[in-house]
Computed example of a mutant assay.
Amino acid sequence: MNAQTTKQLPIPPHFDAKVGEVWRVPYQQRAADAREWAKKHQISAAAEDKTRICLLLIDVQNTFCIPDFELFVGGRTGTGAVDDNLRLCEFIYRNLGVISAIAPTMDTHTAMQIFHPIFWINDAGEHPTAAVTMITPEDVHQGVWKVNPAVAGIVGVDYAELASHALHYVKHLSEAGKYPLTVWPYHSMLGGIGHALVSAVEEALFFHCIARNSQTQFEIKGDNPLTENYSVLRAEVLESVNGRPIAQKNTSLIQQLLAFDAVIIAGQAKSHCVAWTIDDLLTEINHTDANLAKKVYLLEDCTSAVVVPGVVDYTDQAEEAFARFAAAGMHLIKSTEPLETCPDFPKIGNG
């Protein structure tokens, strides 16, 4: 039976809700389970979908989602990302027959990048040691923090130019109304456990891939040493101090997203990579057709804001951003809502 339906499916029996732990996905067994599940529930291949739905997952990686990892997004509850991912996995399984494609972004870093401690030193030759260090234009101009000379050759820019770029960079962030340059703990390190997807989410994505014959589309971001890259659609700064391009917009993904009938977005963190990605998507939509915002759905119960107790709390900023997205026409929905009841959700019927 070749049909696409919004009918919600049961949760497969293999799902045991271990979303706050790291473990190995049993691929061969899950592949067999997925094929049998598709047969039992008459789930057709995604290529046959008449209505194309994309689930864009932002940085659902161990480094942000597992307690005691480098940048666990606990939100104000302290268990934010864990709770979010339980709901997210259940959403994927229940809507397996509706979701045509899943695109997870992968925050991907090495040590010597502009937002990591080794990049910066003070007059004593010390690197930032606070849980989170904000660097302002005044800090750089006054020499409170300076570029580490040892980094220059490694990132392929001589020291004088790199120092000029650093000042240009923090000024640009300030002038553009962005968050100040934030020096985070080393996180999402390429080759490390923190870089990997949360095991339970990876399992759900693999199950979807096999059941629907839909290749998971991994989107790498954040590997440029000269700029932050909260959004998967564009880096924070695209040009160096001399106007030389240092990064480009992710034009291919932008075009793909705008071509879907609906785009559903979730992930971490609501205040940073999720908000910045949605903001960039909204900018592209407004440049194309503002009505396209109506086909974007934000799973607001599958995302949490950055909160470092006693240091920073970005919850209010995250809520303000989501209110702005809703005012622009995007829809704030819960993962438990049947998709067919969501406002403006495209009609899905038999293929």
Results as ranks from 00 to 15, higher is better:
Ile66Thr: 15
Ala269Gly: 02
Ala327Ile: 06
Ala32Cys: 10
Ala47Pro: 01
Thr251Ser: 06
Val263Pro: 02
Asn85Asp: 13
Gln217Arg: 07
Ala204Leu: 09
Gly177Asn: 11
His14Cys: 07
Leu253Tyr: 05
Asn95Leu: 02
Gln42Gly: 05
Gly20Val: 10
Trp23Lys: 11
Ile11Leu: 06
Cys54Asn: 10
Ser44Glu: 09
Asp280Gln: 08
His127Leu: 05
Pro104Gln: 09
Phe91Gln: 00
Glu340Cys: 12
Tyr186Gly: 01
Trp37Asp: 02
Tyr297Gln: 03
Trp276Tyr: 11
Gly125Phe: 13
Ala305Thr: 05
Ala150Lys: 08
Phe218Gln: 00
Ser252Tyr: 07
Val144His: 08
Gly97Met: 09
Lys295Thr: 05
Asp280Glu: 05
Ile265Thr: 12
Glu219Met: 11
Asp68Val: 08
His287Thr: 03
Ala275Glu: 03
Lys146Trp: 11
Asp139Thr: 09
Asp49Asn: 08
Phe72Gln: 00
Val198Lys: 09
Ala290Met: 08
Asp107Met: 09
Thr336Cys: 02
Asp59Leu: 00
Glu337Ala: 12
Trp23Met: 08
Leu339Cys: 07
His14Ile: 13
Lys7Trp: 04
Tyr159Asp: 14
Glu21Tyr: 12
Ile43Phe: 06
Gln256His: 13
Lys7Asp: 13
Leu299Gln: 01
Met106Lys: 02
Gly194Tyr: 07
Lys270Tyr: 10
Val307Cys: 03
Gly80Ala: 06
Pro13Phe: 13
Arg87Pro: 12
Leu86His: 04
Trp23Ala: 07
Glu70Thr: 15
Val19Thr: 10
Thr303Ile: 12
Leu190Pro: 00
Gln248Ile: 14
Phe260Ile: 04
Val151Glu: 09
Leu298His: 05
Ala328His: 03
Met189Pro: 09
Asn2Phe: 02
Ile220Ala: 13
Gly351Pro: 14
His141Asn: 13
Ala266Asp: 01
Gly310His: 03
Asn229Tyr: 06
Asn2Ala: 03
Tyr314Asn: 07
Thr288Met: 00
Phe207Thr: 03
Gln113Trp: 03
Asp279Ala: 04
His141Arg: 11
Cys302Asp: 02
Gly143Leu: 10
Asn95Ala: 01
Val170Gln: 05
Arg244Pro: 00
Thr5Lys: 12
Thr133Gln: 15
Phe325Cys: 04
Leu162Ile: 07
Arg35His: 12
Val98Ser: 10
Thr182Met: 15
Glu228Pro: 04
His41Ala: 05
Pro128Cys: 06
Met189Cys: 07
Ala131Val: 15
Tyr27Glu: 13
Asp84Gly: 03
His208Cys: 01
Val296Cys: 10
Asp59Gly: 09
Arg76Asp: 14
Glu239Val: 10
Ile118Gly: 07
Ala262Ser: 06
Ala262Phe: 10
His272Asn: 11
Glu202Asp: 15
Val144Cys: 08
Trp145Arg: 05
Thr216Ala: 11
Cys54Leu: 05
Gln4Phe: 12
Leu162Gln: 04
Cys302Arg: 02
Asp280Lys: 10
Asn286His: 13
Asp83Gln: 12
Ile102Leu: 10
Asp83Phe: 12
Leu205Phe: 15
Ala321His: 07
Asn250Val: 04
Ile264Met: 13
Gln113Asp: 09
Leu281Gly: 02
Val157Asn: 00
Gln248Thr: 03
Thr136Lys: 03
Leu282Gly: 00
Val25Phe: 02
Gly156Trp: 08
Gly194Leu: 03
Thr79Leu: 03
Glu219Cys: 13
Leu292Phe: 02
Asn2Asp: 06
Glu284Phe: 14
Ala323Gly: 12
Gly177Lys: 09
Ala293Asn: 08
